[in-house]
Design a protein around this nucleic acid. Structure first.
Lengths: 144, 144
DNA sequence: GGCTAAGTTTAGCACTGGCTAAACTTTATG
DNA sequence: CATAAAGTTTAGCCAGTGCTAAACTTAGCC
């Protein structure tokens, strides 16, 4: 996504550009959070578990992990469990924090637990720092 | 995609499945809303305007419009302006309604106008009917 | 130790959504 | 009314994210 600037810098397009950028990081975020959860839960993350929880095939997981590995976010030896690099852990923790706030916020709004979980997963990657702060504040003062 | 290793995995993967489905419709939604806005604003929607506002190239717009045309959402003759089918208008109106609610909700939360606009664009496609209802209700009672 | 089941990776395909460059059509101007 | 400018389309490339089927590795069990 190399947009060489110049007269192409239209204000209106900023939002859509950001969304496309968000989507790029979204998949990485989902993988990393999931891997972190699996490690916390069961001590290790295996490709099959990741595939199952994301609802994709093993092959897709392998391919994606390869990209994430090149990005220095995860580490893995062939046929072995998946680990997170320090960078990966940082990303996972940020993601989980965001997730907690968004889901908690939706619950405070009166959304059902099931929907809150589903919606939070989608919304979490599109929430700016400012909005996240507002949600946290809303939560802190008990949803009013 | 046969995972019967328990309900937990199935439930978790549902969220990610929905997000992938959302993303598919997201692009269509963006195009259609934008085209509707352009028609309302200037009487017609041209490819160049769409490209400019979305921040993508003309060629990308042409290719995407072709798919949307096959989906019966937009109509266009070569070298002419873009129109929406009745289906397209329905989609655009729903999208704009959603958008208004989400953006209004963020403003009511105390988010700045600029951020509200940006975030709403991203969030709008991931908000369930239930959450949208809650946001509308929150708005209706004046943000409390 | 050897077999088999489970788990993992590779290979190859499809589609989406980006891009640039070049060709073509429409429109505006002198 | 001819031609240049603006707008649009086509062609061809690339990367990401999904899939299935087949090959390979690891692990569990006689």
């Amino acid at each position: 996504m190399t947009f060489k600037k110049g007269q192409t810098a239209r204000l209106r397009s900023a939002a859509f550009r950001r969304i496309r950028a968000d989507h790029q990081g979204e998949l990485a975020g989902d993988y990393v959070e999931l891997i972190a959860d699996l490690i916390d839960e069961k001590g290790e993350a295996r490709g099959t578990d990741v595939a199952m929880r994301l609802g994709v095939s093993n092959a897709t997981v392998v391919k994606t992990l390869k990209r994430l590995q090149e990005g220095g976010i995860v580490a893995q030896e062939p046929y072995r469990a998946i680990f997170l690099t320090p960078e990966g852990w940082k990303m996972a923790d940020e993601g989980r924090r965001k997730h907690r706030i968004v889901e908690g916020f939706l619950l405070a709004l009166g959304i059902s637990a099931e929907t809150a979980r589903l919606d939070a997963e989608g919304i979490e990657h599109h929430v700016s720092a400012e909005t996240l702060r507002a949600m946290a504040k809303f939560l802190a003062r008990g949803g009013s």
